[in-house]
Simulated assay, not measured.
Amino acid sequence: MANITAAEVNKLRQTTGAGMMDCKKALVEAEGDFEKAIEILRKKGQKVAANRADRASTEGAAIAKVSDDKTVGVAIVLGCETDFVGKNESFVNLANQLAELAFNYASKEEFLSADFGGLSVAEKLIEQTGVIGEKLEITAFEKIQAPFVGSYIHSGNKIATLVGLSASVDGSETVAKDVAMQAAAMNPIALDQDAVDASIIDKEIEIAKDQLRQEGKPEAMLDNIAKGKLNRFFKDNTLVNQDFIKDSKLSVADYVKSIGKDVKVVNFKRVALG
């Protein structure tokens, strides 16, 4: 039997919201496999938070920037070890300078090799590690292009998001920012149902069927009911299908259409500490 520590149990409790004993039993059953334990709790109907990414976040600054013509956006996370450094003005200034430089590069690998004041970005981070006394690294790098790109940075530089719209029209700036705020707050797993990975869909169907069996539903009914649960999963977890946080009577897709019936969200990226 795996040796389950109190710290592991507490981490699972913080991640899922399930009780301590339930978490311990799940970890024992999963032989210490954290992701498997989460799945076990879900199958048993325990409360599991959809958003787990920010729970065990390290510190730093998440920055999003958009080009002057509003057609390109970049978002990076400059990570560090402590909140004290992450909030330091010179550290945040460095993160902003790096984000400006990131516009010129297509990938994190290219960006780390880029020139920054005579050093590569990677070398600059090593240099600053020596100055600050904490490990610095680029923990996230995202870039999008679209006819109109908007951005949002959550208070304290904890989360940064980019949203691309299919057209640049009156109202695009407000709508793109609102949708970027939605992505920051709701942490969707994909743009729409077509963008959800097949492995996630298979897992959700399996979880739904296991829950229905425990409720005593006939085997012949499981497929149809599970599909209904899957549609609910898409509504809760894909950006354009989510209820718009400023008006729950509208989906995000419907809200975007308020500035033009053919306007759509075509891309989004979300970066966060951790």
Rank of each mutant, 00 (worst) to 15 (best):
K227R: 12
I205E: 01
N157L: 13
S248I: 04
K203P: 00
K264G: 02
L250V: 04
N231K: 15
K261Y: 03
K217A: 01
I126M: 10
G216N: 05
Q145C: 11
F141P: 00
V240Q: 10
Q193R: 07
L212P: 01
Q145G: 09
S166P: 01
D197V: 03
A198T: 10
K143H: 00
D192A: 06
E219K: 11
L212E: 01
L222N: 08
L136M: 14
E173H: 14
M221S: 07
A183F: 05
G150D: 10
G164D: 05
K217F: 00
E137G: 13
I205D: 01
I189M: 10
A253E: 09
V265T: 02
K229C: 02
A253M: 05
G260N: 06
Q214Y: 00
D262V: 04
D262A: 12
K143S: 02
K257M: 10
I245N: 07
Y152D: 09
S251W: 09
I159M: 09
F233E: 02
K209W: 04
S258C: 11
I159P: 06
V149K: 08
D262E: 13
I259F: 13
D178M: 08
I205Q: 05
K209H: 01
V196G: 10
E173I: 14
T139H: 06
E134M: 12
D254V: 08
G130R: 11
V196E: 07
S166T: 11
I201Q: 09
M181V: 09
D223V: 10
D210H: 02
D178S: 13
M221C: 03
I259R: 15
L136I: 12
S151H: 10
V240G: 06
S166L: 07
V169G: 03
V256E: 08
M181C: 04
L250M: 14
K246T: 05
E204G: 05
E137N: 13
E215K: 01
